[in-house]
Design a protein around this nucleic acid. Sequence first.
DNA 1: AAAGGTGAATCGGATCGTTGT
DNA 2: GCACAACGATCCGATTCACCT
Length: 583
Amino acid sequence: MVVNVFSHLFLVDDAGIPSSHGTNRTSPIAHQDPSLYDEESASQLSHHLPNDDLLTYGQSDYRHPSMLASHTGAPQGNGPRIEITCPDLYHYDHIHTNPVNISRPMLDIPYRENQCLSPASSTSSTSWHSDGYSPGTYSPCISPGVGEGTLAGLTEAVLCPMMQAIQASGSPNTSPRTSITEDTFLDRRPTSPRSRSASPQGKRTYTEYETQRSQSPRFGRDEPAEFYPLANLEDSMNSLSHSLTKPIPTKIVRPNLEYSVYTESQVGIISCLSMPVAALPALDWPLPSSTEQYELRIEVQPRQHHRAHYETEGSRGAVKASTGGHPVVQLRGYTGTEPLALQVFIGTADDRNLRPHAFYQVHRITGKTVSTNSQERMLNGTKILEVALEPKENMRAVVDCAGILKLRNADIELKKGETDVGRKNTRVRLVFRVHVPQPSGQWISLQVASQTIECSQRSAHEHPVVDHQELDHCSVLGGPQMMLRGQNFTSESKVIFFEKTHVDLQLWEAEAKVYRDKCTSNLLFLEIPPYRDPNIYHPVKVKFHVLNGKKRCSQPQNFTYTPLSGETFSLFINKYTCVFLLK
DNA sequence: AAAGGTGAATCGGATCGTTGT
DNA sequence: GCACAACGATCCGATTCACCT
């Protein structure tokens, strides 16, 4: 079943001009997707057209935009007219209604194609800096609501005109992903897909971005919704309820675990359509990884480095695990017999709350090396992969089908409303979501994010970092094996011991033997080289560092060579005497 | 069934333009 | 304004593997 529902809400003035927030009614997302407008869809929609009593919500006219023309009798009051459409829900057609049908023909949709012109945009990009937005005045947790474009849409509807103004002026959750039709950044791209993008005029620099982040009291600390003061939220909702004939259940908006539970009755209120499925939380909506009953776990974490590929180059394969396999995710506590869809998308890895990464998209990997079938779909400009969680597999999925696509910084930064910069914004997380149906008709949504993945192409040559060294001293003869624990070690890493004078003149250096077969990106096994002078009488402090290539080296680590004890010294002298005599 | 050719996917690294210091 | 380094985006080629002849 395909539910072609449109959830975006439009405020249309008397002249019929949509307000600036939300998706333009003539959005190519909606209009260029033929499936949204085929006869069957239209027919289905016609059956699901809302009742007029739904118009009690702020005297809204609730119409499918494609139906507007045929509904000339729609209320045309003097006040603003509100229309609600639900493009997002279209993308979720099979998840809620049917078991995952991975075997059906896949829709491989490059993210720039018509229905998914815009890449993801971070929530942060949604205008903390927008004019007129007063940070903290209204809780940003309202808008994501139960689902992008559902509660969000309703919220916008019921907040009209008060909250409309606020949201239009820059609620952090009025996702710019919904406004890509206003945004013509793609048109400004170089015509040749292989040409380097010109420096975008007027875009913010990395320095400006960092400065702004550090100076703004709000920017840079997108607290998860759990931590937003409820007072603001309730105030908003109280104000809201005055505009409503039916108040929104507090449960829907209360920022706690209950966020992840949705009932169909609530959905009925939210969507105003006879949808058999629940609306889902937005991708930037914080969700728990476990409840009393369920737990979504990452059994095998992805590697900390993965070189993402550009559209202009070939795939660089799926994200791998540090063990050599691939990430593994399991849903525990599920006793149902139906498979569920595990959703995967690329999230941010900064100090703000998790949200879809603006500069990276998940990329479906297919081929002989991939054992896990997956399906791609777009949700508000963010590409997500769906992988089946099968009861027969103990609800465990090997995610060997998820690569990472890097979008060009210039393209994203030119996007209207985008405030993040791509430069040095190369850390991501794999985010996994699952929506578990409940017998009561509710749905529980769980989410878990992986450890950070560095996606830059130079990651393999990043400065190595030594976190721990097993030994800090040995005799001048060297020889003991030492393990270093740290980061960014490579198969090419070298460990150099050296000694310098007070004026930084290098007196000595020696390369340690590295046991490369044992080494990982976090562990380095080496043999400590002998000191240059075995005849020292006092401990000598030297240093060592790990080198990746010529220029990238770790911070110097301290090491001490101790003099030989009398007995050892005698043995040493004898040994060298013998060698001397033999020569 | 084995051998060779082909193409796609993967991956490492080089190159060159842009940006920041 | 210049030089340099770092980074971003693209390009190139080697390798591997599956498939076909």
